[in-house]
């Protein structure tokens, strides 16, 4: 315990020292231009910034994740045996994801594998739907809406998100249930005679998920398109370009970083969403995150839950990196 305490407080200090060393090195090599970090912010503020950021990055981001990764490679043990002779590193939790329990007769753990790929696939689909919904709106907001219209639109977009995620999910449930307004309307107008099982068909889930992270798509898109000089759109039009050509060759290339960051956000968040699948998933739906949740709280198998969460995280990151590479975008660009 003493060792880890020293580690916990020593690391931020190490970060500070490293930072000093780096800036000194840059200074000597003449890489850095202008006043140095500490000269610009003053020693006290500079030290505070470095310590705070170091602390934050370490405690909030790095440490829990590292603990999770570490846990995912350990067997499930009662607390008394943790750190004991049986607490050895193992790949068992990852093996379980692929092949299921050692007593099962099936060759693969199809249930979980299917849920995993369904989650990834549907997340991609929902990202694309989100993009299709948001692009025209973002373009209108950024390029042609008057200031007054823009304010109204922004308000209309943001206000619904004051309602929390669970309530929103339940609202979809109420709306789409067999006795819900939509079914009543459909039956009342004579279009159908039986209520349609929207929730069982996962319509509710997909709607809920599409809606949940709409803002994460629209704002990066809006920002990116907003920075496009209107004259460029007009120049293209003046040169004879039809509207689709302008979007495909002028607006989209310009907005590429915004599209990438919006899509990355929506994809990651959708793949990791928990509330919507729990509330809106039909009885046969198998989304990956509820499975992860079950590992932790139903099976009380934290190491396995950690392994599952880690699998999802790494797959998502890899997927995003591959897509970015395919579109020739660097990580630096999407944060512009």
């Amino acid at each position: 315990m003493n060792g880890s305490l020293a580690f916990i407080f020593g690391l931020p200090l190490a970060v500070v020292v490293l930072f000093f060393a780096l800036s000194a090195y840059e200074r000597r090599r003449g890489i850095a231009t202008g006043p140095g970090f500490f000269q610009r912010n003053g020693l006290a503020v500079g030290l505070y910034l470095v310590l705070a950021v170091g602390f934050w990055a370490f405690f909030i981001i790095l440490l829990p994740q590292l603990a999770m990764v570490d846990m995912s490679f350990r067997p499930k043990l009662p607390p008394a045996q943790m750190g004991g002779p049986k607490d050895l590193y193992t790949l068992e939790n990852y093996r379980y994801f692929l092949f299921g329990s050692t007593t099962s007769t099936a060759e693969w753990n199809w249930l979980h594998i299917k849920a995993f790929f369904l989650t990834i696939g549907v997340s991609i689909l929902i990202t694309l739907i989100n993009f299709a919904i948001c692009y025209p709106l973002a373009f209108h907001m950024a390029q042609s809406a008057s200031a007054a219209r823009l304010r109204v639109l922004l308000l209309l977009l943001i206000l619904p998100y004051w309602v929390n995620e669970i309530l929103r999910a339940f609202a979809f449930r109420v709306l789409l249930s067999s006795g819900g307004i939509i079914n009543q309307l459909l039956m009342g107008s004579g279009l159908t005679h039986e209520p349609i099982d929207f929730l069982g068909a996962d319509v509710g889930l997909y709607m809920g998920l599409s809606y949940a992270y709409l803002l994460m798509m629209i704002f990066p898109l809006y920002n990116a398109i907003e920075s496009l000089d209107r004259n460029q759109v007009e120049a293209a039009r003046d040169l004879g370009a039809p509207w689709w050509h302008i979007h495909a060759f002028i607006v989209l290339p310009h907005a590429k970083p915004g599209i990438a960051s919006g899509c990355t956000l929506v994809f990651m968040l959708t793949a990791g969403a928990l509330a919507a699948p729990l509330v809106l998933g039909g009885p046969r739906t198998l989304w990956f995150t509820p499975i992860v949740y079950d590992r932790f709280y139903q099976a009380f198998n934290w190491p396995q839950g950690a392994a599952y969460a880690f699998i999802l995280l790494v797959s998502c990151i890899l997927f995003v990196l591959v897509v970015l590479k395919a579109f020739r975008l660097s990580l630096g660009e999407i944060t512009r």
Binding site: D229, N231, Q232, E234, A235, R237, D238, L239, G240
Partner: peptide
């Protein structure tokens, strides 16, 4: 429309792509 007229416009800020 401007895309159908036999004119070409050079913008105040050029608006090159």
């Amino acid at each position: 429309g401007p895309n159908k007229r036999p004119t070409a416009l050079i913008f105040q800020n050029l608006a090159l792509f």
